[in-house]
């Protein structure tokens, strides 16, 4: 009997949750777009930097230092793999975290749909 009394607020609350879950999905799309925009800007910056600046210009502000290319071979370690590994790791962690939120959200949505169906069945009764 009480479930029938609570039906209207539950329906309202279900609707609010549905809207909230939908806007969360939109927010996730925004997060992906923001991350892609950051990556695009970085990539664009690299291309522009490569086109606009010659090697001499890139080293112009550093004449007081010993350029890495002039160091003896034993003092050099391959830096690019470490940099790429670090950069990739940042992306992997952020995307995995975003995926974990997505997964939890999908699970919640599914449970929510099941619950909505159960509540509707209880309201109408098994015979409709």
């Amino acid at each position: 009997m009480r479930i029938m009394d609570n039906m209207v607020p539950i329906k309202d609350r279900l609707f609010q949750r549905r809207v909230s879950l939908f806007s969360m999905s939109l927010q996730m799309v925004m997060a992906i777009a923001l991350m892609l925009a950051c990556a695009g800007t970085l990539l664009g910056g690299s291309v522009i930097a490569g086109e606009l600046l010659s090697q001499e210009e890139m080293l112009a502000g550093q004449e007081e230092f010993v350029p890495i290319s002039e160091l003896p071979p034993e003092d050099r370690l391959p830096a690019a793999p470490l940099l790429i590994a670090a950069y990739s790791f940042v992306w992997v962690v952020l995307l995995v975290y975003l995926w974990s939120i997505w997964r939890r959200l999908t699970k919640l949505e599914k449970e929510f749909e099941d619950f909505t169906r159960t509540v509707s069945l209880r309201k109408t009764g098994p015979d409709g």
Binding site: G45, S46, G50, M58, L59, G61, Q62, E64, P67, I68
Partner: peptide, 8 residues
């Protein structure tokens, strides 16, 4: 990041 100068 690519544009930023190299550290000495």
């Amino acid at each position: 990041i690519a544009w930023a100068p190299y550290e000495s």
